[in-house]
Write a protein that binds this DNA or RNA. Sequence first.
DNA 1: AATAAAACATGACAGATATCATATTTTAAA
DNA 2: TTTAAAATATGATATCTGTCATGTTTTATT
Lengths: 225, 225
Amino acid sequence: MAKCEQCIIKQFNSLKSLTKSELMRISSCKTSKIIKKGTVIFEEGDVLNGVYCVKDGICKLSKLSENGKDQIVKMVVKGQLLGQRSLISDASSNLQATALNDMEVCFIPKTEIIADLQKNPKFSFDVLKEMANDLKEADDVIVNMAQKSVRQRLAETLMYIHDSFGVNPDGTLSVLLSREDYASIVGTATESAIRVLSQFKKEGLISTIGKFIKIEDFNGLKRVE
Amino acid sequence: MAKCEQCIIKQFNSLKSLTKSELMRISSCKTSKIIKKGTVIFEEGDVLNGVYCVKDGICKLSKLSENGKDQIVKMVVKGQLLGQRSLISDASSNLQATALNDMEVCFIPKTEIIADLQKNPKFSFDVLKEMANDLKEADDVIVNMAQKSVRQRLAETLMYIHDSFGVNPDGTLSVLLSREDYASIVGTATESAIRVLSQFKKEGLISTIGKFIKIEDFNGLKRVE
DNA sequence: AATAAAACATGACAGATATCATATTTTAAA
DNA sequence: TTTAAAATATGATATCTGTCATGTTTTATT
């Protein structure tokens, strides 16, 4: 089994601030898991007793609205930690995590890492930084949701995915989402998301290769109103 | 000048986790300020070199959208800290803070408190907790913005203000906001906010005493669709 | 390969909300 | 007090978006 100390993934998240001995201890009690596309990793209300370090794949964090629709709040990709809040609070999760493609994750029990959060100030400061950044991003999402049209939000979502999660060799977005997922990110009806994406295609802003989306006119997307 | 060690306000925020000596040091370099209603405390892009401990009053944290409208992201009241993120990151503020009524605050320079964040794990864990909670609240706001009607959002805003910030002796909401502010919280046009509030009044869900709003039918507001 | 199921697509229509216009009322300033 | 400015209010209208209906295409399963 791979060792945390040598794992490249840890460079991308706050685990990098742990000392070698801390990493070794964690390594010895972590569990590697393969999670199949579509699997619910944890649900709203679940009490998490640890964090997941995402080695590969991507998942969505969503919350069920009272109207029965799912709202995607954030996406977590390779390199990031999933379920950070469980380290800080004993409260149950307010979000559901679902794998968007096949994932490889390491689960680190809370009991093993919580002490490091208390003792290693570099580590806790790092977690603090990530959380502050999440909060900043959440503020932006709030403003977008409140002030922009579905068309604008969808355009921005495409650009966000492009910039944050990268593209395949052929230029298509590496993250493959259903129209329903797009609707669920943007906070609109699935039909509306489909309509807008069709429109973008007609306007030459995007193209599709199979199920993949390729941004053809980045500046055009920026100018969408 | 009042001393931090004896200040009751600190009980309500993470400063309570500082030791007596830490508090005494901070106390000696803090600055008390009176901020008049309407004053912009800091703007988007400003680099904050400290945090404000709110001793009295309330302010709004807002962000300017590209369409020129302000979106209120959060409100900060007596007891809370303002500008926490400046302690964690050197980046400029992504939000603007504006006093909604006359405020009394203490400004604590970053230089004085940053060391405590690194050395006192209880304190940093406490800041972490507050930030985790802010993040959770932000998630809820995102879902509400994305999935609920203006009517529902406004009803929830009224209940939120009632529950979080309390009422005056006559039962009216203690926080006095303009219709424009309500619109800016809910993310709608000022006219729409006015219309919905008028409607709530007609329906007997709320009443007004002068400029103050009183919730008359809490369950009715809950049931708003 | 045949079939069922899921995902995608598009039209028609209704309802919600923004915008613009115009009063009215309240607050602030001279 | 008078006047100007800001906040509140309401109507008319256009636009955006959701919902329902229906059809097509793609994917999965037997």
